[in-house]
Design a protein around this nucleic acid. Sequence first.
DNA 1: CGATACACCTGTGTGC
DNA 2: TGCACACAGGTGTATC
Length: 287
Amino acid sequence: MPELPEVETVRRGLQPAMEGSRILRAEVRREGLRWPFPPGLGQRLKGARVERLRRRSKYILADLSTNETMLLHLGMSGRITLSGLEAPHVPGQFHHQHPAPEKHDHVIFHMENGARVAFNDARRFGALDLIATDRADAHPLLAALGPEPLGNTFNGAHLVARLKGRKGPVKALLLDQRIVAGLGNIYVCEALFRAGIHPARAGGRISAARLERLAAIIREVLQEAITAGGSSLRDYRQADGELGYFQHSFRVYDRAGLPCPTPGCADHISRIVQGGRSSFFCATCQK
DNA sequence: CGATACACCTGTGTGC
DNA sequence: TGCACACAGGTGTATC
């Protein structure tokens, strides 16, 4: 589900509820998600203050006062919902009115400031782990990740170096988190459309000039999506329950059969399956 | 090494 | 209304 813009939107929404506040109690309502939760999870979180909420790729990282970092991944269907947020009289203080837990609320954080944060994930492809903060970068799920697409080290030269000699379709290569971290199916489709690159084109057979443009477009699309609060399809919502609205800006994703949005193009959007994932593109505009 | 298939799991939409 | 099936924003693991 959530790709980089959605995760970043969730992180920003959680900041006022979590950063600087203590976890009075972590209500752990099942044994694990994709993997078992770490041993003693509830006890290790109890009383910990969240010093900082960060994001790396599609992971939310909460640095705790216990010198541990909690790592969250939303998988395909993960959501985080906040309650107790209505019109605080004092900034940072939240009301203590909370709804009953919903189906698939697996972990609920009861914060000292009155906020309640529920990690909900119907399909349970998500993850939650704890690791020593000074070794967080070495966590097995983070260690091999490529550069942040919105960071300083991601550019055309990086794509040139990483795609050189690769025979596989550029679509699959951009989904490979070791090459660039944070893209998913939606934003790869959208970026390839804007860059005029066919998703089936071999990664190693794209000119440096086109990859330079692709890198800039990836940043542009992600930035626009963050500004829009992400894309709300089925179950994604921002932490405060608001819907993102970038889905209204999709040019190709989930638009098979609809007219190509390029002015003057008479073609329609195609759908193919690559590596088991749908790819959407215009066969006229993307070569 | 690289490319591909499969696994995990629930919910929703579609066609009969 | 029921049922079978396809499909969904991800990614680790196994297999050539």
